[in-house]
Design a protein around this nucleic acid. Structure first.
Lengths: 167, 167
DNA sequence: CACTGATTTCACGAATTCGTGAATCTTCTG
DNA sequence: CAGAAGATTCACGAATTCGTGAAATCAGTG
């Protein structure tokens, strides 16, 4: 029995689906909500990086409502964007090329909230208590990271640019 | 009516409790489980950085079981350690001085799992598909971060050392 | 401006998480 | 080695999260 084209395509999709689940599981282990993780990986592993809601729903075997929810989440954390082909009713969702940069920079806002809390704590505890000095250490560390992170990213993109000048 | 010492202490504790809740909320907003967050902040803001289970329970108004659970969580993510004064039945839980370094390095293991998944995906998709090249970009980025992070930390500790040589 | 295809919203049910109280287990003291 | 103080485990109930189906809303098209 020969493996025809249809069989092959089916096998490929089967394998892709399995992979998506595995990768998504790794992400959920790190606190990522389940559906968003699956949708995100589906987009990452699609050739164009752009899929419609219907394609996502059928690939992942989920309801349109689930797609909607996942995409809303992913949008708010800037991991995917919404596009609409002009003169069409279908949205297309896409992963940004620099997803990870955005994801990292997002951490930044988190850091700044932490810094706010730490500063507040230091004032409350009085500047010369041992606890305050512990909080101060943390604050110092965070502001260091927050200062250095953008520089690190910049360096990465500069290096990468150098390696693929044709991009 | 004069403010006596007891009143002042009570007011301080009240304020501390409020602060702990606020800071813990900030942490939970970033995916941190609630109880662990509260216990962690309580330890951070204690003068010695070390509290017994009973002290935590009374400060946070939670059951011993909740303390136990929170502490177990915090231990597994290396944010607090357990100590026992020799010749005592009481455990003391403490925040490590370099909590944040550990926390960051922990991210490292997360990154390496992601890298594994990405590599797997690249193989599955065939190395010259567009999707594979997208995954490849991500892989490249992560290995960069994983390489640079320890260097960044090292630099921080070296700089800090220079600023507080008496430590 | 009615029609149709597509997305979002909402209420519900299922599943999971979370904290407690009670019981069990551990470890020091006499 | 019995007793007591402390910590942990476990089952339960409460609260939250999650995904679905159905209804409502939105946006192009003729």
């Amino acid at each position: 029995m020969a493996t025809n084209r249809t069989d092959q395509a089916a096998a490929d999709q089967e394998e892709l689906r399995d992979y998506i689940e595995r990768f998504a599981n790794v992400l959920t282990d790190t606190g990522f909500p389940r559906m968003p993780a699956r949708v995100f990986v589906a987009l990452l592993t699609s050739d164009t990086g752009r899929l419609t809601a219907a394609e996502l729903a059928s690939l992942l075997q989920i309801s349109p409502a689930a797609v909607s929810g996942a995409v809303r989440y992913l949008s708010t954390v800037h991991l995917v964007g919404r596009e609409r082909d002009p003169g069409s009713r279908r949205d297309r969702y896409r992963v940004f090329d620099d997803v990870w940069r955005d994801a990292l920079l997002q951490r930044d806002s988190m850091l700044s909230r932490w810094e706010t809390s730490l500063t507040e704590g230091i004032h409350m505890l009085g500047p010369d208590s041992p606890a305050a000095s512990r909080l101060g250490e943390s604050l110092h560390f965070f502001s260091f990271v927050r200062r250095e992170l953008p520089l690190l990213l910049e360096r990465y993109y500069r290096e990468r640019e150098g390696m693929t000048p044709q991009q």
